[in-house]
Design a protein around this nucleic acid. Sequence first.
DNA 1: GTGGTCTAGACCACC
DNA 2: GTGGTCTAGACCACT
Lengths: 131, 131, 131, 131
Amino acid sequence: MIMTLDFQSDFPIYKQIRNQIIEGIAKGLLKPGDPLPSVRMLAQDLSVNMHTINKAYQLLKQEGFIQIHRQRGVVINPDGFPKITDDYLAILQESLRPLIGESVCRGMKEEAFLDRCRKLFQQMEKGGEGQ
Amino acid sequence: MIMTLDFQSDFPIYKQIRNQIIEGIAKGLLKPGDPLPSVRMLAQDLSVNMHTINKAYQLLKQEGFIQIHRQRGVVINPDGFPKITDDYLAILQESLRPLIGESVCRGMKEEAFLDRCRKLFQQMEKGGEGQ
Amino acid sequence: MIMTLDFQSDFPIYKQIRNQIIEGIAKGLLKPGDPLPSVRMLAQDLSVNMHTINKAYQLLKQEGFIQIHRQRGVVINPDGFPKITDDYLAILQESLRPLIGESVCRGMKEEAFLDRCRKLFQQMEKGGEGQ
Amino acid sequence: MIMTLDFQSDFPIYKQIRNQIIEGIAKGLLKPGDPLPSVRMLAQDLSVNMHTINKAYQLLKQEGFIQIHRQRGVVINPDGFPKITDDYLAILQESLRPLIGESVCRGMKEEAFLDRCRKLFQQMEKGGEGQ
DNA sequence: GTGGTCTAGACCACC
DNA sequence: GTGGTCTAGACCACT
């Protein structure tokens, strides 16, 4: 799975990594039980500090997306993923609110916005690496 | 317009202020030409430092949502708002992507996600203060 | 002579007024001895505070472009204008330097820049109100 | 690169810093990809507050002259510089207009003015530190 | 009174 | 170590 980082972004590197792994899961490129590269390997591949990879992995583990074993290394959680909790819905709502607010200001129609979302859902379902 | 800040949020305060003003515009609570409180007034109202308000205002000015007028003070841009540029669509896409990625992982259906968006659009259109 | 003010500009209003009067002189629209509107009149015309007009006039007087008489009012200096002093050349140089620096960065050719200057000179010589 | 500030100038310090960095680029002293001193280091070197430097850097970043890279720190934009847009030409024109207006009033010949410009262009091309 | 600028000092997240 | 954010308090130019 290819990963691209933006070192100018407001988003910290470790969160970009976390997001792209989650995206990989959503697209089905990463399936429950699949192994992930070691901290050291991924750090080298992305030319990033090991601490940064570690932080991303710890976050994913804490959220329940991956498991970290001393021996077997890092794997996508084989026991399923976190569910849609009320907490998650609240966070999702508060994340969407400013995006929708700005879109309305700029004159975007509801349907145009929904279409954008639909396209992204299709990208996830199709699973390809495609943009 | 009522504004509520979350000092514990990982979103910086100045961005929360920016977002809520944009939301106010989207809801129609703030119309082109409407005056905004002075930097110092709003700072006092929100129990926040002057510079934090200033940062929010400078950002909104740079984005084209407000004007800082030598006579009239700070006003909602009377000449209209920024349009839906390709740049904006790209940013929107990259902002939505991780949200949709995670939702898919958690097993959320496309329609459930779209419904969330629709509700937020309706909140903006109705214009009430409602959460 | 038409005057247009930009209330969003970084330039203070009184300096914009000063500049446009000097421009009027350069274009020959205002000749030595010509009367200028009274502070009160001009303030009303431009919807600007009297203090602002006063400041512009005081600056022009101090620089030697106009004279202010109790009785006859404000007139373009009939005794000629300030000359090209070393001080003026130094200021001019320091004002041009950042403009040229930025133009070079952006890839503007020397001739293209000089052409811009020539055009502005011609505008002044022709004297019209034309942009 | 040596930088000199005039604390008495009516130009704010952060703009002087911005201008001198742009000048450094124009002269070729600063090349795409070159690192700039950290906010705190430069602040100490110039005996100026950190925030003032930050303001200059943020401005240069927003204009596209530098990048703030999570790993490499602050660097001259390696992807090239902003182009000559219509917006820039308009700003340039409005910046030159009052300079040329006053020069005409003071009896400066067009060629004398252009010569001043040519000298500054040569300074930039030569690249020396020379005033 | 306004916004604009600057200082000094602090805490934080990130790398 | 870096930049990002926030505070408190100050001065200034402008309107």
